[in-house]
Structures are given as C-alpha cells and as structure tokens.
Write a protein that binds this DNA or RNA. Structure first.
Lengths: 226, 226
DNA sequence: ATCTGTGAATCAATTCACAGCC
DNA sequence: GGCTGTGAATTGATTCACAGAT
C-alpha cells in the first residue's frame, strides 16, 4: 500500500496474532504518543487518541485491546506505559540493524533520515556496486562495496535490508541480500521482487503512491482533468 | 500501507466506484503490464498476471472486472489495451503537475526520481523556505522560494503537492499548499497532518514502514531478538 | 459520570466455483 | 480445453452498543 505489500509469510501464531490492519496502525499511535510525551501529556482517552490519529474511538480501543487490557476504565490510557506495550509488540524494545543497498539520491535520503534512528533502526552500512562511491560518506556512514555484504551482515548482525537502487538493479540487490542471510527486505525500487518464501518483502513505490492519490484527486474533481 | 492513509473523502460516486483495495493494486498491474510490453508480451492471462504480481488469479480477475469486461475468454487480456484502461481509470491519460515542498535530501531524491516522470507526473517546481537553497538546481528544476507557491500553483496548474520537509515544518507546508489551492497532498514527513476535509492526504512514513516490517521479522524469527 | 473492553452486527475484501464464451 | 466474468460463500475489518470497572 500505499504501497504494494506481499503479506509476509506467517508460520504458526507464535504469539497473539494481531490483525494486519491493526499492525499498520500501531506505529501511528506510537508516533502520536511519543509526541504527547514531549508535550507533557501523560494520559489519553481513546477519543483523544482517535482525534489525533484521524480515526474513531472504537477502532483505537479495539486496536489497543489486541495488546492486552492496558487502559483504565473511566480514565484512559497511560501514555508512557502504552508506548512501552506497543514497542514490545512491534519488537522495538531493542534496535534493529539495517543495511541500505544503493548510495544514490534515495539511499542518501534514507540514510540521513532522522526518522530511522529515532525509531530504533540503526543503519549499519550503505553499500553500492559503484566502486567510485565506495569510501565516500553518506549521513555519517562510509559507503562500502556490495561485495562486503555478507561480512557486514554477519559481523554486525544486520537483520533488515533496504533496497534503494534503480529498478533495474533491485532484483539483483534482493538476491545479494538473501544470499547474505537477510530475511526482511524493504524495497523502495519500483519493481516486484522475487524472493524465497521465507523472506518478507515490503515494497514502497513512491510513484505508485502518487498514482493512487491521483485517482482520488480525479474522483473529487472530475472537471480538473479535461 | 503500507503507510498511514486517510481515506480521501469521496463525494457522490461520480463514476463506477472501485473498492479501495483494488485501487491500490491497479498501479501494480500497470507496472507489470508496462514491463511486459518492453519484453514484447502482448497477451497475459489472469493466472500469469497473478504470478508476476504475487497475487492469485481470482483477485486479478475481480480487480480487472471493475474496469469493465476487457478480457477474452479462453485467451486472456490484451496487454496494451489493459494499460490504456487502467490509465484511464487512474486518470493517467494526461500528466499531473506536482510541486515538491522541501529541497533537502528527500526532496532531492523525489525530484530526481525517474519513477515520477515515467508515470505521468511532472515536477513543476521545488520550493524551500531557506533562501540559501533558492536558485540552486535539483534534478533539472530550479529551487524557488516557498512564497512563490501561490503563483506557481496557479500559473502552472499544479494539482498535487508533495511534502518532503522535516516533520516540524510539515503542517506549515500543508497549510501553505492548501492556501495555494492544492487539494491533494502526498506527505513524506513523519507527521499526521490536519487539513480541511475537502483535501486528500496520503502519508508515507519511511520509518513506519520499517517498524511494520520489523514486526513480521520478529514474528517469523522470535529468537532473533533476544 | 466516564471511559474501557468486547461480544454482536455490519460492512468490505477475498476466495470459491461454475456458467458462458472463445 | 482454457480462461474470463461474476454471483455466492467465506473470511477479515470496522462499527455498534453496552456491561463492567474506576
């Protein structure tokens, strides 16, 4: 969605299963709760949270109920505690190591992106196939050659690969990541990747997002496009 | 999701309504069909398309049936004709003009992104609030000052705004876009935007995408995160 | 009195399965 | 025989509405 999502293979429910639709909203709540903390807010009701997230209260309560019963009737939710519970559920209590493939514009933007580190993702390395780029710095990280991928992944216990290559190189990048032992890939290249079934892929295509938006724009204002 | 989506307000069904879930898949088909054309493929069955898209044949047929009955029983779909029909439905038969707000790393990457122009989106201008950046070139487009937004939008008939600012400036950027008459916003800043109800917003948060992927990574390999 | 948590009801999306056409 | 198009059945997500806790 927004992006095209290959539903990652879920073996047997190893923990309480949360509906996919709810999982995609948990990071939204997390963001709002973190902001609330900086503003000194320590309690929020489902109604208030819904307002901030642009959802309705029933959905918020249902979503949060999947985490357990962490609200207080008549009062609301303790912000800090809820942050902890959502982080626990999303596996964000400890950092994840990420390797970015592709040191072009997008790789640059992603590596510099403050939203990664602040959300518990550390870019271990940026790799590129172009030797001319190797050694240069991208967002405080030295670009290394794609041939080093295996040792980077193993030595640094990297678990997520981000593909930021041109579309034509994306499949190759995916294969290299898989060969290096990566099981989770976030793909920003505009291509459908073919990977072994045990590998989870999430694709975000910036162009497709615009196309989808364009559809609704057109629906709202049919005259706009003569 | 991919992503957090505020379902754009849909007034009365001005044309045949296509389910939201199907709309998000149309660009995927489009991409595959375009690739097939470059490979000289002119016919595809729902089964083949499903294989290429990582979906199942029934879903593909149902999705395509919303466009009309453009397949041939016993044969499949004519690739070129299907491309035309999907483009027509998504409103991609003519180009859309886009203005990018924020000339930082992300704005740079987006403006340079080949996937925009190849998909029928033309970046009319990049604007930034930092006068030091004004006049510099970003992907062939000269950066202009954010104060020029209104005249850019009016003179160039821009219909979509892309927010590529730091999160703290995103709400302000949205307000400026709305004031300039923009009704469709694609937001890459990690914030929930507050906009008038007639404005459609689609938010893509790169960090959230990683968080969602992390959840499934953790589900698949619960031992991985001790 | 207020707000959570949750079954029950509703609505949407997906899948099934097969009639109809090539 | 092979493949589309589509009602019917199923599965999943959302909303309703209220019992129960503070």
């Amino acid at each position: 969605m927004t992006d095209l999502v290959k539903p990652p293979s879920r073996p047997e429910a190893l923990r309480r299963r949360i509906p996919d639709a709810a999982v995609t909203r948990l990071p939204v709540y997390l963001q709002i709760l973190n902001k609330s903390i900086t503003e000194g807010v320590s309690q929020l009701s489902s109604d208030q949270l819904a307002g901030l997230a642009g959802l309705n209260a029933a959905k918020v309560r249902k979503d949060l109920s999947y985490l357990g019963s962490y609200g207080t009737r008549g009062v609301g939710y303790d912000v800090a505690y809820l942050v902890y519970q959502i982080k626990r559920e999303l596996g964000l209590l400890n950092d994840w190591k990420v390797v970015v493939v592709g040191a072009g514009n997008l790789g640059n933007a992603l590596t510099n992106y403050a939203g990664f580190s602040s959300r518990g993702f550390e870019v271990s390395a940026v790799v590129d196939i172009d030797s001319a780029k190797v050694g240069k710095k991208v967002g405080g990280v030295v670009v290394r050659h794609v041939d080093d991928l295996l040792s980077i992944v193993n030595n640094d216990k990297v678990s997520i690969g981000v593909i930021a290559t041109p579309p034509a190189s994306a499949q190759r990048a995916a294969e290299l990541l898989v060969a290096a032992g990566i099981k989770s890939i976030l793909n920003f290249a505009a291509t459908v990747l073919t990977v072994p079934s045990e590998v989870s892929v999430r694709s975000v295509d910036l162009g497709m997002e615009l196309q989808i938006l364009g559809y609704y724009e057109q629906l709202n204002r049919p005259g706009a496009c003569q």
